[in-house]
């Protein structure tokens, strides 16, 4: 009997939870705020769904009822992607080590 592809995705999901568990525990507490902003940015990879949804209309009808939701989702996710990564970068640039000469 063939295994349902769903099981493979479920395996990936479960294993990723464990990876997440160990990786996040190793994050230094002082970087917890950047951690939140970067996880926020990467969870906006949901934009791939938004793009598929937006392009679900056909040539005659770019803005069908289903694609409008896709376009809206693209805007939201794009705000998050750009905002999330840039603000993380801005924060991380501020973390500096003590200068030796002080």
């Amino acid at each position: 009997m063939e295994i349902d592809p769903f099981i493979f995705r479920l395996s990936i999901f479960i294993l990723s939870i464990f990876i997440g568990y160990y990786v996040v525990w190793s994050v230094t507490p002082s970087l917890h705020t950047p951690l939140m902003s970067v996880t926020n940015a990467i969870s906006s990879v949901i934009i791939v769904g938004a793009i598929i949804a937006a392009l679900s209309g056909n040539d005659g009808e770019v803005f069908s009822s289903s694609s409008v939701y896709g376009f809206l989702a693209i805007i939201l996710a794009a705000v998050n992607i750009f905002g999330g990564f840039l603000v993380t970068q801005r924060m991380l640039a501020m973390y500096k080590k003590k200068k030796k000469d002080k």
């Binding site: 479960i14 939870i17 997440g20 996040v24 951690l35 791939v48």
Partner: peptide, 27 residues
């Protein structure tokens, strides 16, 4: 995000959803 990832059968979304989900839970 992970729920949507399963719907779309998209590995990147499933992995990310799991990572973010466990990250928030640990915090």
């Amino acid at each position: 995000a992970a729920g949507i990832g399963f719907t779309l059968e998209n590995t990147a979304l499933i992995i990310t959803g799991a990572l973010v989900g466990s990250s928030g839970a640990i915090l």
